[in-house]
């Protein structure tokens, strides 16, 4: 029974990682860049939802919607101001710029909201969503997180496969130049990708802060790195891969914490990642691209 409860906790944590990893993987698939600032957008989402829901008193729904809105705008702004001028530059230059944006967000948050941790009251408090089987109690946050993850995944897959915008995204990720020649607005498509990724980051921020209720300006950075690992785990650029990777990382981390050691849980996750990459160098669901001369 204890094992089952660890499993459910792991699933919930993994769902949060999966939602964050979706943002990483979409941006990577389309813009071919590692957006290191993604983790900090999560933190901004957390703060905005807290302020709107508690300081302004707009309630949970208002907080969540506002934070999604603000993060979406923020994502588009970041892309337009910092990454767009670097289109076509070396990927390292873009990476360093992303790190610069990450520093900027963290330090701006430090100035605006001070370094003192905020105790975040759960925004996802729906008693009817919690249930218990015998000794096993599942909180509403856990249920909502897992459901949210499944829903986001399903909607995103539909969006990518069925809509015109999704088709444009797939085309841009396949070949930017050819897509442009076919009349696709490449810059617009990339902006939409950032908007969706950042919106997802806001959802992840609300869910994460509801489950682990401490919020500081650096809250986002470690989950960001873990989710990035998760995206690579599943094969970066692949949307089902991000999902599988996120849930695997969450499960691994929770089980390692429970059965090996709290301090070493991160080391275990990273060690498994290294082993997987050695066996499958493109991740679990990534496609191996053969190099042409």
């Amino acid at each position: 029974m204890i094992f089952l409860s660890h499993l459910i906790n792991g699933l919930s944590l993994g769902s949060i990682y999966a939602i964050i990893a979706l943002g990483y993987t979409m941006v990577y698939g389309i813009a071919k860049m590692l957006n290191f600032a993604h983790g900090d957008v999560i933190m901004v989402g957390g703060y905005i939802s807290y302020i709107v829901a508690h300081n302004l008193g707009w309630g949970a729904i208002g907080g969540i919607l506002m934070s999604i809105l603000v993060c979406t705008v923020l994502g588009v702004l970041i892309e337009g101001l910092a990454y767009k001028p670097l289109r076509g530059a070396s990927s390292l230059a873009v990476l360093i710029t992303a790190i610069g944006v990450s520093y900027f967000l963290q330090n701006a948050a430090l100035l605006i909201w001070s370094p003192d941790p905020i105790v975040y009251p759960s925004l996802v408090d729906l008693p009817w969503m919690s249930f218990s089987i015998g000794d096993l109690k599942v909180s509403s946050v856990t249920t909502v997180t897992v459901l949210c993850c499944v829903l986001v995944m399903a909607l995103l897959t539909l969006f990518i496969n069925k809509t015109k915008m999704g088709k444009a995204m797939r085309a841009v990720s396949e070949d930017k130049g050819a897509a442009q020649l076919m009349g696709i607005n490449v810059n617009g498509t990339i902006s939409v990708t950032f908007a969706i990724g950042s919106g997802l980051a806001a959802i992840a921020g609300v869910l994460m802060c509801s489950a682990y209720p401490v919020l500081t300006p650096t809250t986002g950075s470690m989950p960001g790195i873990k989710a990035f690992t998760a995206a690579v785990f599943g094969g970066i650029g692949s949307i089902p891969g991000a999902m599988v990777g996120g849930i695997l990382v969450g499960l691994l981390e929770t089980l390692a914490k429970a059965y090996i050691s709290t301090e070493l849980s991160d080391a275990v996750v990273f060690a498994v990642l290294i082993i997987i990459l050695l066996v499958k160098p493109a991740g679990l669901l990534g496609k191996q691209v053969t190099e042409k001369v």
Partner: peptide, 27 residues
């Protein structure tokens, strides 16, 4: 192991090793 990989995958594995080393020294 690291130099068998390429590009971004190599980067993430070096990141992972860095974190593992930090975790081990923590214990």
């Amino acid at each position: 192991p690291v130099l068998r990989l390429r590009g971004d995958y190599l980067a993430i594995v070096t990141l992972a090793f860095g974190e593992i080393i930090k975790n081990i020294f923590n214990c």
